[in-house]
Nucleic acid binder design. Structure first.
Lengths: 276, 276
DNA sequence: GATGCTGCCTCCCCCTGGGGGAGAGTCCAG
DNA sequence: CTGGACTCTCCCCCAGGGGGAGGCAGCATC
């Protein structure tokens, strides 16, 4: 039997952390003295403690560590671990994207943006809608677009999506993806939807989407500078996307922000540089 | 002037988060109405907000974001950002190491370990000591060993280090690195130090140090199983290290845990497998 | 047996970077 | 001028710890 201090030295987990893991229900001491409350561990617990240590180094939440430790067979454990490695992979992608985008942001001066004000009539399209989180949206989009492709068939124009602002600001929101279609069917999740007429401030983002919200910001600046206000979900149209070319730098995404005209008292500041 | 909600839509930062950034002193609204407390932003603040967004995506602490935003010149900013990218790099290394090690831990059965009990006399060596954190220790080691090499010259035996257990459990502690030397000089940080005589439980770890604490755990199990207790800082001896070969799989590290004999009432459990 | 050190116990507050929600005040369009 | 949307502040919550207080427990030494 080992005291908590000895066990700490053997496992490289701090005494505090061991106590926390006890409270959390993973890594229970082999014995706890009823009267003194002293925790006692056995050497057989060392490997388990090391597994916990590793999983925590990988930022696996304690609850999931618990699940992994308590799962009955090795296959389940391996699966859970694989899930987390995949999650780390995604996180890494996100980090890479942020680095790319940060470099662009810190570059001296952004290229000025071509923005066009465009009035769109109401259009009926084949669409799939759903409420998703920011994490899910990429996967959800792929699935929905695959289903649309299966139903709509022939290319009929660029696909697009409508994204609630809350998706970006709160991390979840309503999303609609569509493909233009003359006679939109009702199959599976696909429904005919009439997109309302809007006035859009439109610009085009070139390349992959790592730093697309830099373009969003520039568009926003333009919108404000032209005494407009934002109204409703943003519309993205995928002029050139992964379905067209694997060369991500060739992608072209049209961003359209529904706007309406406002009258503002103060002079609208010019869009311009920043001190960052 | 933009209300917080409009600014939120334009920057993809949630209203709550914008308020927090205000409180934290980064991203102050251009105007705050004295009587109502309403925050008002200008479009010029959008790029700054985006930089903050990116930096936060890279897990840069708010305080450091503040420093980056408020640093006077672009070079300083670039330097701070580079520091963080380097930190991310290190983090990534750590994650990679944890993955490697986790795989080894989850492998069916660990190879049994050769452990030897060895009595060491007191030895005088050329040493550098310091208090470091777990994050710093690798860099610190390189610097210290380079200085030792410069002072000691000719190879005189394997270099080594003494590491306080608190370095591993609490994340910081006292460290001593040394090279054997017949007449240890006193130059720069180098001092002659007499390592006390100890009885060591010694084993050898093969390969890089990614999963060295698995070996630590096995050694610990052996120590306990042989009615010994741990006393004092662990000693590592680098029999084959980066100075000898770039082939990491050829590295050999001797781990020596100072022990003393105890008498324990209960039968010592055998070291064995785990259910993980 | 007393003393005193070290180790262990619990409990509370702190940190980071947010989210949820309450209750009250404000803005603006109809 | 009224209603709804927006905004304000304030408090509590989360993970996964750390710092430190105050009080027993174990054990070697005197």
């Amino acid at each position: 039997m080992l005291t908590i201090g000895e066990f700490s030295q053997l496992t490289h987990l701090s005494v505090r952390t061991l106590r926390r893991y006890h409270d959390a229900g993973l890594l229970e001491p082999a014995t706890v003295d009823r009267t003194t409350g002293y925790r006692y561990y056995t050497p057989e617990q060392i490997p388990a403690a090391q597994v916990v240590h590793r999983l925590r180094e990988l930022d696996v939440p304690l609850a999931d560590v618990q699940r992994i430790l308590h799962s009955p067979d090795a296959a389940t454990r391996a699966g859970l671990v694989a899930d987390h490695l995949q999650r780390l992979e995604r996180e890494l992608d996100r980090t890479r994207a942020a680095v790319v985008s940060l470099r662009r942001l810190l570059r001296p001066e952004p290229a000025p943006l071509d923005v066009e004000l465009r009035v769109l009539p109401a259009t009926t399209v084949a669409a799939i809608e759903g409420d998703v989180t920011h994490d899910e949206v990429l996967g959800w989009y792929s699935g929905a677009m695959a289903e649309l492709d299966a139903v709509v068939g022939e290319p009929t124009g660029s696909p697009g999506g409508l994204y609630d602002n809350s998706l970006f600001t709160e991390g979840r929101g309503h999303v609609l993806v569509y493909r233009p279609a003359t006679m939109p069917p009702t199959t599976g999740r696909v429904r005919p939807v009439t997109l309302p007429a809007v006035e859009l401030a439109v610009t085009t983002h070139a390349g992959e989407h790592d730093d697309i919200d830099v373009t969003y910001g520039q568009l926003g600046t333009w919108v404000v500078a032209n005494t407009l206000a934002v109204a409703g979900p943003v519309r993205e149209t995928y002029l050139v996307g992964p379905r067209d070319t694997p060369d991500r730098s060739a992608w072209r995404t049209e961003i359209g922000w529904p706007v309406f005209h406002v009258t503002r008292a103060e002079g609208s500041p010019l869009p311009g540089g920043t001190d960052v």
